[in-house]
Deep mutational scan, measured.
Amino acid sequence: LTVHVGNVTYHFDNPEQAEEWAKRMAKKYQGQIHVKDGQFRIE
């Protein structure tokens, strides 16, 4: 699973971990989480 934050990409084996990280990053950067094809993108 991949989480994109700006132009930085993080890889996770565990979906719960990826989702948790995406939520934390979205809160930190006050962005929206977009989920597409098993990838999380924070914008």
Rank of each mutant, 00 (worst) to 15 (best):
L1H: 15
L1E: 03
L1F: 15
L1W: 15
L1V: 14
L1A: 15
T2W: 09
T2P: 01
T2S: 09
T2H: 09
T2K: 07
V3A: 02
V3C: 07
V3H: 01
V3T: 01
V3P: 00
V3R: 00
V3I: 04
H4S: 12
H4A: 09
H4E: 06
H4Y: 10
H4F: 10
V5I: 12
V5E: 01
V5P: 01
V5W: 13
G6D: 08
G6A: 07
N7M: 10
N7R: 13
N7C: 15
N7Y: 11
N7K: 11
N7T: 11
V8E: 07
V8H: 12
V8K: 12
V8P: 01
V8W: 13
V8T: 09
V8N: 08
V8F: 13
V8C: 15
T9L: 10
T9Y: 08
T9P: 04
T9K: 07
T9H: 08
T9Q: 06
Y10A: 01
Y10W: 14
Y10P: 00
Y10C: 13
Y10N: 00
Y10H: 03
H11P: 01
H11I: 10
H11Y: 14
H11C: 15
H11M: 08
H11A: 06
F12T: 00
F12R: 00
F12S: 00
F12M: 00
F12W: 01
F12G: 00
D13C: 15
D13F: 07
D13S: 12
D13E: 10
D13R: 08
D13L: 09
D13V: 08
D13A: 08
N14K: 10
N14A: 08
N14Q: 07
N14H: 10
P15Y: 15
P15Q: 10
P15H: 12
P15G: 06
P15A: 12
P15R: 14
P15W: 14
P15E: 08
P15L: 14
E16Q: 12
E16V: 13
E16H: 14
E16R: 12
E16W: 11
E16T: 11
E16N: 10
Q17L: 12
Q17W: 09
Q17E: 13
Q17H: 09
Q17M: 11
Q17T: 10
Q17S: 11
Q17I: 09
A18W: 05
A18N: 00
A18G: 06
A18K: 02
A18H: 01
A18T: 01
A18M: 05
A18E: 01
A18I: 04
E19A: 12
E19Q: 10
E19H: 12
E19T: 07
E19G: 05
E19F: 15
E20A: 14
E20Y: 12
E20I: 10
E20Q: 12
E20T: 07
E20C: 15
E20D: 09
W21Q: 00
W21A: 03
W21M: 03
W21G: 00
W21C: 15
W21N: 00
W21I: 01
W21Y: 09
A22T: 02
A22P: 00
A22F: 06
A22V: 06
K23C: 15
K23R: 14
K23N: 07
K23V: 09
R24M: 13
R24Y: 14
R24W: 11
R24D: 04
R24F: 13
R24S: 06
M25T: 02
M25P: 00
M25W: 07
M25V: 06
M25Y: 08
M25S: 01
A26W: 06
A26V: 05
A26K: 02
A26I: 04
K27W: 08
K27F: 10
K27C: 15
K27Y: 09
K27P: 02
K27G: 05
K28G: 02
K28H: 09
K28I: 10
K28Q: 07
K28E: 07
K28T: 04
K28W: 10
Y29E: 01
Y29N: 02
Y29Q: 02
Y29D: 01
Y29P: 00
Y29V: 06
Y29F: 09
Q30R: 13
Q30H: 14
Q30D: 09
G31F: 12
G31W: 14
G31D: 03
G31A: 14
G31H: 08
G31C: 15
Q32F: 09
Q32A: 09
Q32R: 11
Q32E: 09
Q32K: 12
Q32T: 14
Q32N: 06
Q32I: 14
I33K: 02
I33R: 02
I33T: 03
I33C: 14
I33F: 08
I33M: 05
H34K: 10
H34R: 09
H34N: 09
H34C: 14
H34G: 04
H34D: 06
H34S: 13
V35H: 05
V35T: 05
V35Q: 05
V35K: 05
K36M: 11
K36D: 09
K36N: 08
D37R: 01
D37M: 02
D37T: 01
D37N: 08
D37Q: 02
D37S: 01
D37Y: 02
D37I: 03
G38P: 05
G38C: 15
G38I: 03
G38W: 03
G38T: 01
G38E: 04
G38Q: 03
G38V: 02
G38Y: 03
G38H: 04
Q39M: 07
Q39W: 06
Q39C: 15
Q39G: 12
Q39E: 14
Q39R: 04
Q39H: 13
F40D: 04
F40S: 04
F40P: 04
F40R: 04
F40Q: 04
F40G: 04
F40E: 05
F40N: 05
F40I: 15
F40H: 04
F40L: 14
R41N: 11
R41Q: 11
R41E: 10
R41V: 15
R41H: 15
R41P: 05
R41A: 07
R41F: 15
R41T: 14
I42F: 04
I42E: 04
I42D: 05
I42R: 03
E43K: 06
E43P: 05
E43D: 08
E43A: 07
E43N: 04
